[in-house]
Amino acid sequence: MSDAAPASQSAPQPEPQYATVEQQAEAASFGMWVFLATEVLFFGGMLLAYTWLRANHPDGVAEAGRHTTVVIGSVNTLVLLTSSFTMAWAVHAAEHGRQKALTRLLSATALLGLLFLGLKGYEYHGEWTEHLVPGLNFHQDGPHARTIELFYFLYFLLTGLHGIHVTIGIVLIALLAVRARRGAFSARYYTPVEVTGLYWHFVDIVWIFLYPLIYLVGRSGP
């Protein structure tokens, strides 16, 4: 969590409330998992709303889904999956005390995150020009216009909140990269890398579920 231990290469000292460094590392990792459980329910509440919409207005949701930009969505999925891979690799490098590799892999992960956000922004721009932004710039015709509006209402909230999570992740990972470059981590102390990695993988998992729910709806239809 935010309670990072003092950076020291030789003999890391635990914070005063802990007896040992191991206890501190376990507490940080467990704390992150508890936080991720919280996050599951945070996104879960909105997924319930999505489920309700889709169950009650299946045709409208299918039509709305066909308005989404599946190419960007798929490329973005690839980007995030790859960033998860580089993050896992980064933790592995930290575990083995390879400072240079760690710095590079963290930087790569942050850059992939930025690429994701860039593509997402481009996609938002496209939706603005197509009048798909509920409440601000929405104009659609047809029998399902209302459902499309609700779909996009949830779409912007889901992807927006996910995007905030990605942004926070990028900041955290970039800070870690800077610290790694300064040699803050070693094979004996890399808890912040591990814990931030857990967070980043979780953000990836959220997207893994958002992808079919947003971009693949109604693709087999007319």
């Binding site: 945070f42 996104f43 509440g45 709303a49 929405f138 949830l154 909230l157 909140l161």
Partner: peptide
């Protein structure tokens, strides 16, 4: 609590945008 958080965000968005689930 996270479910409350998301619910309040949905209400606030609905109030600001005049569109909502």
């Amino acid at each position: 609590t996270p479910v409350l958080a998301i619910t309040l965000i949905l209400v606030a968005a609905e109030r600001l945008l005049k569109v909502g689930i």
